[in-house]
Design a protein around this nucleic acid. Sequence first.
RNA 1: GCGGAUGUGGCGGAAUUGGUAGACGCGCUAGACUUAGGAUCUAGUGCCGCAAGGCGUGGGGGUUCGAGUCCCUUCAUCCGCACCA
Length: 928
Amino acid sequence: MGYNFVETENKWQKFWAKNKTFKAAIDHSKPKYYVLDMFPYPSGSGLHVGHPLGYIASDIYARYKRLKGFNVLHPMGFDAYGLPAEQYAIQTGTHPSVTTQKNIVRYRKQLDKIGFSFDWDREVSTSDPFYYKWTQWTFLQLFRSWYNNKTNKAEPVTGLISEFEKNGNQNIDAFCSFGDEIFTASDWITMPEKQQQEVLINYRMAYLSETMVNWCPALGTVLANDEVKDGYSERGGHPVEKKMMKQWFLRITAYSQRLLDGLEKLDWPESLKEMQRNWIGRSEGAAVFFKTDATGDTLEVFTTRPDTLFGATFMVLAPEHELLEKITTSGHQKEVLDYVSWAKNRSERDRIADVKNITGVFTGAYSINPVNDQKIPIWVADYVLAGYGTGAIMAVPGHDSRDFAFARHFNLPILQVVTREDEVPEDPKHWDDSFDAKDGKMINSGFINGLEVKDAIMAITKKLEEEGKGFGSINYRLRDAIFSRQRYWGEPFPIYYKNGMPYPMSESDLPLELPEVDKYLPTESGEPPLARAKNWKTKDGYSIETNTMPGFAGSSGYYLRYMDPTNDKAYFSKEANEYWRNVDLYIGGDEHSVGHLIYSRFWNKFLYDIGLACEGEPFRKLINQGKIQGRSSFVYRIKGTNKFVSYNLRNSYETARQHVDINLVDNDVLDIQAFRNWQPDLADAEFILEEGKYVCGWEIEKMSKSKHNVQNPDELIKQYGADTLRLYEMFLGPLEYHKPWDTKGIEGVFRFIKKLWKLYHDNQNRFYVSDDDPDEKELKVIHRTIKRVEEDINRFSFNTVVSTLMICVNDLAELKCHKRSVLETLAVLVSSYAPHIAEELWQLLGHNESITYATFPVYNEQYLKEDSIKYPVSFNGKVRFTLELPADMTISDIEKIVLADKQTQKRLQGKEPRKVIIVPKRIINIVV
RNA sequence: GCGGAUGUGGCGGAAUUGGUAGACGCGCUAGACUUAGGAUCUAGUGCCGCAAGGCGUGGGGGUUCGAGUCCCUUCAUCCGCACCA
């Protein structure tokens, strides 16, 4: 019989591995192209058809670029640290590295079967000490760096120290978690070492700080917000409490503006860039100082609307605000304390669900509005967030809807200070809502009366600055990244403690390998698992940090390591970095839109600052591949029986819908015998059929084991081959779309592969090509195909390439074309999509080299010329008939012929056309 | 609530700058060859209609000789953020 895909695919996969066909090496004679996939976490359940979608697309593009003469870097590796392996270790005692290694081997096998052109010599694995040495190394550089606002980059702390020794910190403008304490050189020099370290840690790019975390005592660990449901852990359902804890942070906020600006030049989906912009959350406004009436403290607020300062009728502090306790008057102490403890104990969920519920308490204190010396009351309310801005606001109820609601609820004064064009100001008492829009003129606002909002903002900011009562300010929502986890399975920190202060270990001590522990659980006293390790101390006996790094540590710089993965002297060589530079095409899921993609950009910018990375952005073009959804099948059990009713009859009964394994269903018809064998309790199941069949219902859902709708690639490859799988995954639709998996459609692509094979063979399946020159029709078919394939690949429209290739094969089959030159071209066009069959055909055509490094054909416009055009003739825009005319006919000749045509005459019925529009080579439209 | 995306046959989707809507494939219908087929081949297949013809890209409106494509408006679904000062 025809094409033997099993044998052929095996043969070429072996060939590629043996000959290292896809090995990439620096070659200055060729332009480079770096194609990267987001590397996978090797989970225990292996790959399903959704996982390789992006890898197939990137592989096609990588292979295409090789054909176009590029030196392509296309590596793959494993994001090998992760919770599931640790969880499994806790349950079974199996070391996570054992589990992870096993899963990696399985993944590798599955990936190899799909025929990817990865350079496996560059494989990295984040949990491999040879790799994580550089993750730890980068952390050390972060620890030893500070952010200089004057040069707008990260610099070595050593430079900072010598400046302290000379001039103290008065000339330093740093991005730091330090107040405005000024010290002199002699202050610095006389400081005890411990105190110096306490000062320095506030400047470091990697620093320790207290923060409120979700602490789960039962699990002995800190949980992310999404791991907490209703105040209980999602896993295990243990109670979770808020707790202050020391954590490592990375000073990503120093890069807020650069991370924002960098987006402009990136070829990323607009929606993704927008998500990052929102995440960074830049807002322009002003910081304004309010002095408290009684205690004289300064309360700093951030506002985007300094123009409305005259309309500020009260202030609100977050329950966590540090001055709250101090300013609260004795008469209000109890009330405020009660409110604060209530607010602090509210779970995340309560706060979100309770949006409509307005709460707050008066502190008894007053502050002075800096522009008009008005005394305004200070309240505490949890609608003001501690983590945003300064945790305090000036409330302008006339022009902010939340302040408005609050003022209404507590009967606080509302003052209008902005008025719309043509509006007669009326007492805000009668308003239904505040007027938040940023257009209009100022009223009731002293020296800025009559100004437009925009001008008023500038004027008042200037005045505040002159009088030292505030300054123009930009605020970001982005927060520093918490970088420590109380887990076992992660990179250890190369940090030890002396006198309670953290010190960096030396580079020569790296990698600091994960120690063995007796159990993968926290200690009885709630310390992280690493505290169980014996002798977790430096040579000098100092204890080593017991936290480990989070998942994003290892994935933040892996694309750089791929450039030079075997280097044991450096993260990567300058030569490799300057050749490969950054990723030209990055493909992965949109679940990493704000996490991985923002941390990576930060990591890269830091390495750029310290002179390591030569590009400011890691990923030039990015595509989010869509998810492949499952298509679940359902049967309908009549309640309380073991009887199942077919889909269209189900409404006559009380039924319960249940998932059925998609392997038992063909074209929505249930295989009743297989169903009975599926589970023991179904052995005696009865059925109510329609037209002799049991028809199943279906729905598009997430692909998951529990829904019995998982499609495994291995089975499909066994049945149809990898080439067919690759083509079909692309044929499913645009790469970016979410689309349901439908196994039925794969048959069409399988037929295409068989038809392709037949073009190169006679009826007896003997290889057959002729050396005759192709005729005009054959040339037209193949050149049209070259053109379309190239255009579509260049706009990453992988699905339309498949249909173009199908059309080409159909056309050539109809022409009974066996001409060598045409078929050689076709093999190259097909090779990036279906590499195995293409290699085989290429070899049959007499080539000894792999088709990988063939040359992508160039189409010749001359063969595409049409002698005549079939013009659609429309009347008032509706097409009525077509008319075949010579391609080079002039407009006036076309008009004459069209108007003389019998069918036109019939349509016009003797009337004169109002207008005749002729678009050469496109359309004729007659307006009647 | 804010931000983003998507709506085209029974299904996945095509239509690159406004120019024959539904390419390609699945499914379906009929037929051929077969002992048989879930193999292969041929023809058909947007909807309504016997036909002539009419209607069709979520709905409504507009610009245009001509709109899936441009503008306004509205609805639905999905995703992200969610008291952000």
